[in-house]
């Protein structure tokens, strides 16, 4: 059985903005488990509760109810915090420091031995391709450069659990590819990566498993292929020896080729159509499920939640 690196159980959070503003229930019994060594995507539209969940895991937001553990340690214990590398949605850094100064400061807070700090900072700067710009004040950095330093401080302590909130937002294609490479490289080193995104191709490319979150609770969880497979909406049916226009079962679209014909039928009418084809002497060539994309799945879950 796989070892659980991050466990979130029945997490609830309501924000109370002020006296004259109504409360906002952001998390509603959110639960999930992330296995050790996997890349886990946390997918959902804006306002779904992704960032609040991540802030609860990193101790920035205090949940009203629920439990969070990291490698079986309470998430707010010092032991658990020593296992985490965290990068927030936007790179919130001290702009009066240089990139190198900031990483040194982070290394000290991460309790890295003094003798090791220089080597660790240099290797991290190289890893995020910032060595030649590390002595510039960060107020002169572009967003992509800040993002790289922010990722650097997350990697600096050799974390066992890397938590990244929208790590690729605001990056150019090269930056996105670099971040993807770093995530995959961390997985190869046995690091668990938990990252949120609303950019679906990012998630599809790198994640072993994903959770879709809508309105503060998890709607689906599993491998990307598995999740999509659960969502078969229609079938493509290919057959011969029958004029497709004569089919009486309602179908979505009809095509006739030189040898065979194919039609698309809703999932609930599949059996009716197969029976009709058999009764009328047609020869069934293939029956192919038409799977929705992750994006379509998410949109449908979103619409269901809204209704």
């Amino acid at each position: 059985m796989s070892e659980v690196q991050l466990r979130i159980h029945d997490l609830w959070k309501t924000f109370h903005p002020g006296l004259f503003e109504s409360s906002v229930e952001v998390l509603r019994g959110l639960s999930l488990e992330v296995d050790k060594g996997e890349i886990f995507g946390f997918l959902g539209p804006n306002g779904a509760g992704k960032t609040t969940t991540i802030k609860a895991v990193t101790g920035l937001v205090i949940p009203d109810r629920g439990e969070i553990s990291i490698a079986d340690q309470p998430h707010d214990s010092m032991q658990a915090k020593r296992l985490i590398g965290f990068m927030a949605e936007s790179p919130y850094l001290y702009t009066y420091l240089t990139g190198r100064e900031y990483l040194r400061f982070s290394a000290e807070l991460l309790e890295i031995e003094s003798a090791e700090i220089d080597d660790r900072v240099e290797s991290t700067l190289a890893r995020v391709s910032m060595t030649d710009r590390a002595d510039r004040k960060m107020r002169t950095f572009s967003k992509g450069m800040l993002q790289r330093i922010a990722l650097g401080q997350a990697l600096l302590g050799d974390p066992q659990l890397l938590i990244l909130d929208e790590p690729m937002s605001g990056l150019d294609p090269v930056g996105r590819r670099d971040v993807r490479d770093i995530i995959l490289e961390q997985k190869d080193r046995g690091v668990t990566v938990f990252f949120s995104s609303h950019i679906i191709p990012d998630v599809e490319t790198v994640c072993d498993r994903v959770a879709t979150v809508i309105a503060g609770s998890v709607r689906g969880i599993g491998a990307v292929r598995e999740l999509i497979a659960r969502e078969v909406e229609s079938y493509e049916v290919t057959f011969t020896d029958l004029d497709p226009k004569s089919v009486t079962t309602p179908v979505a679209s009809v095509h006739r080729g030189s040898d065979a014909a194919w039609v698309r039928v809703d999932a609930e009418r599949r059996d009716t159509l197969i029976r009709e084809l058999a009764d009328r002497g047609a020869r069934l060539v293939s029956l192919t499920p038409v799977q929705s994309s992750l994006e379509e799945l998410l949109l449908r879950q979103y619409e269901e939640a809204a209704s």
Binding site: A88, S106, L109
Partner: peptide, 14 residues
């Protein structure tokens, strides 16, 4: 306000 505290408190800092 500028949220630099996020990175501090996600580290082993009370």
């Amino acid at each position: 306000d500028s949220k630099t505290v996020y990175y501090l408190l996600a580290k082993p800092v009370r």
